[in-house]
Design a protein around this nucleic acid. Structure first.
Length: 658
RNA sequence: GCCGAGAUAGCUCAGUGGUAGAGCAGCUGAUUCGUAAUCAGCAGGUCGUGGGUUCAACUCCCAUUCUCGGCUCCA
């Protein structure tokens, strides 16, 4: 029952992390300090004075001064935008407008108005006016009665509702006075920057829907996203970074590199084309081999189960909306009415498994287990289906059919620390191979939870010990564990500094109980094992999407579906080209021979488009000398070398580094 | 599922009620060429699907499917 790892929002890259070929980051702190560049007179004003101090969320809440100041700036930008929107649509009702990673948003309801992309420009123009006025953010404290009266009189129903929920005596409000005598007043805990002029480098990005308080039964609001930075340069860099990310979009590269496709008739399920299937298979088979050699039992389990399995696991009650299920038998159009007639037995209900864990419980339970069998590790790359909401599907990152490098470890309580230690090593080893860094956090007991405090104490302590023993630094996510057990959250950072959650290690006290698992201990008594859900890649689909974007499609030689393209200069060298191709192929190199009659420049251009790591150019010189002229995708013309040297080089670079 | 946007040739895209276009890719021919696009010709689309309005619909309206941006969900 491994929770599906989810992408997490962009985070800034950490120093010293993996390869950052296009690491666009500029040290922000420089801009945020007192002395701004001379060319940016506004910036001196913008970043000079520290943000206002008297507020609920203080400096201490942030990791760095830089984070703190950006938070204030972005929070303030949301106010500036809200003011602009109220100028354009006085009937607008404001909900929440928080700062977020790289920017801010504001949720707004404008009765009778649906914002369009074109409106963003209008709002931006109005924002410029507010920025230019350089209004002061004036902080005031009001009683709740005052605030309710003020916002109520102005139709700000969301603010009024929110005030009612605030567990405080007095609320803070921030006031901006306009030159035309008007003013913008917003309920807000702060903190803010001093003046609206500081939000000069701002850009609105997109529109979307969002529910009031995030609940689908509540009214839907319009959310306007924007980004704001201390300097023009930082804003431009951020916009450039967004463009870069767009170029690396796995959906675009997936088409361009012929890795996978989708079809309307199988929404949320990928077709893996030969080159994509190569990646999929390489990762899967390598992982299977790796695990089989380190004490795992590799299995394959059914896709379709009687609903009883899911009733036992609890999925039927708690996960049914994501479960594909159907009555056994044939679906005949027009015959549904007759079903369930008197005397007829209810058809058996079948479901497609959304997770592997229940099947693994059945395997454990299939015979009497001894403490000598533990830890028992079952690995399964079975096909899983989850009926995700149609609007949630997105490329390979959000699909309905996928596979995981999933395993369940059945352990005795006192084996938790050691097993988790092994997992940390494994996860490090794998992510290091891709040049990705991993950050760890221990997620502890939530409320409500299953199991006694003593059990949680021991389990959390086991995880903590494993983390400490590994020598890795880790943080705490208090209360973020699953209700059935604590877990370790892994944040994996890619080349663009974006964090993803792929790997997972979760303890589970629940499933062993539901399936009534037990093993015989050395004391000849029955004991309940603890289950550890664990995955390294998570879903192959999403991991491959991350890899595509991490490398920008430029896969290293060991991973590239096509490693070398041999290309002839003219038909005079066809024979030598074929011989070189054969030599590479005989050595196991993934090679394609371009023997067409196009010019060599054109062949190179096409080959670059497919991001093949090496080109072997074969002309009359190479024919005469028995050599190849090698061009690298990443380093250009490497000159000529002996065929065997080239083959050796490719073979050496083909070693899978994990 | 909800809000918004979109769907035109294999790909990227133009086309605001009057007979569907471009570039690349493809095919055929010519060309045999040395490190990021050789030339010419040909072929290719029921404009996502189904209804409707209209003399006339890629274009306007309705429904629907899928995709995208978010929300939501992921015990």
């Amino acid at each position: 029952m491994v929770s599906r790892p989810r992408p997490v929002p962009l985070r800034p890259p950490r120093l010293g992390q993996g390869p950052s070929p296009t690491n666009p980051r500029t040290p922000m702190s420089a801009h945020l300090l007192e002395h701004a560049p001379e060319s940016e007179p506004q910036a001196a004003e913008a970043m000079g004075p520290a943000p206002q101090e008297e507020h609920e969320k203080g400096r201490d809440a942030f990791e760095s001064e830089e984070d703190y100041r950006l938070y204030c700036l972005r929070h303030s930008a949301a106010h500036v935008m809200a003011q602009a929107i109220l100028q354009l649509w006085p009937q607008a009702r404001l909900a929440f407008g928080p700062p977020i990673k790289d920017g801010f948003y504001y949720d707004i309801d404008i009765p009778g108005v649906t914002l369009t992309e074109g409106d963003l420009e209008r709002i931006e123009a109005e924002i410029k006016a507010v920025v230019k006025e350089n209004q002061t953010f004036e902080r005031e404290e009001w009683t709740k009665e005052q605030a309710v009266a003020w916002f109520g009189a102005r139709g700000q129903v969301f603010k009024v509702e929110h005030i009612g929920r605030l567990p405080v005596e007095k609320v803070t409000i921030y006031r901006n006075r306009r030159k035309d005598g008007g003013e913008f007043v917003d309920l807000c805990g702060g903190p803010h920057v001093m003046r609206t002029g500081q939000a000069k480098h701002i850009k609105l990005l997109k529109l979307s829907g969002a529910y009031w308080l995030g609940k689908a039964e509540n009214p839907q609001l319009q959310r306007v996203y924007g980004t704001v930075w201390p300097t023009r340069e930082a804003l431009d860099q951020h916009l450039f970074r967004l463009e870069e990310a767009k170029k690396r979009d796995h959906r675009k590269l997936g088409t361009q590199l012929e890795l996978f496709m989708f079809h309307d008739w199988a929404p949320g399920a990928a077709f893996w084309l030969p080159k994509g299937e190569f990646l999929y298979d390489l990762l899967g088979s390598r992982m299977r081999a790796l695990l089989a050699g380190s004490g795992y039992d590799v299995v394959k389990t059914p896709l379709v189960f009687d609903k009883k399995l899911f009733e036992t696991s609890g999925h039927w009650d708690h996960y049914q909306e994501n479960l594909f299920h159907f009555p056994e038998g044939h679906f005949l159009e027009g015959q549904q009415e007759g079903a369930g007639a008197e005397g007829e037995q209810e058809p058996r209900i079948l479901g497609l498994k959304p997770m592997n864990c229940p099947s693994h419980m059945l395997i454990f339970k299939s015979r009497k287990r001894s403490y000598r069998d533990l830890p028992m590790r079952i690995h399964d790359q079975g096909v899983l289906h989850r009926n995700e909401l149609s609007g949630a599907l997105s490329g390979l990152t959000r699909v309905r059919q996928f596979q995981q490098d999933d395993a369940h470890l059945f352990v005795a309580e006192d084996q938790i620390a050691q097993e988790v230690g092994r997992l940390l090593d494994l996860i490090d080893r794998v992510y290091a191979a891709f040049g990705m860094t991993v950050e760890l956090n221990l997620a502890t007991r939530p409320d409500p939870k299953l199991g006694s405090d003593e059990l949680w104490d021991r389990a959390e302590e086991g995880l903590r010990q494993a983390l400490v023993a590994s020598g890795r630094s880790f943080g705490m996510h208090h209360g973020d564990g699953a209700f059935y057990g604590p877990k370790i959250d892994f944040d994996v950072y890619d080349a663009l500094g974006r964090a993803h959650q792929c790997a997972t290690v979760q303890l589970d006290f629940n499933l062993p109980r539901r399936f009534e698992l037990s093993y015989v201990g050395a004391d000849n008594q029955a004991h309940t094992p603890v289950v550890i859900h664990r995955a390294v890649f998570g879903s192959f689909e999403r991991f491959i999407a991350i890899l595509i974007e991490h490398y920008g499609g430029n896969f290293p030689t060991w991973l590239a579906p096509e490693q070398v393209r041999v290309m002839t200069v003219s038909e005079k060298s066809l024979e030598h080209g074929a011989a070189v191709t054969a030599a590479l192929r005989a050595a196991g190199v993934r090679v394609h021979f371009d023997d067409g009659d196009d010019k060599i420049g054109y062949k190179i251009k096409m080959c670059h488009g497919m991001k093949v790591p090496y080109m072997a150019i074969i002309g009359e010189d190479e024919l005469a000398n028995g050599t190849v002229s090698v061009r690298s995708r990443d380093h250009g013309d490497l000159g000529s070398m002996q065929v065997q040297d080239f083959v050796d080089r490719l073979v050496a670079e083909s070693v899978i580094p994990f």
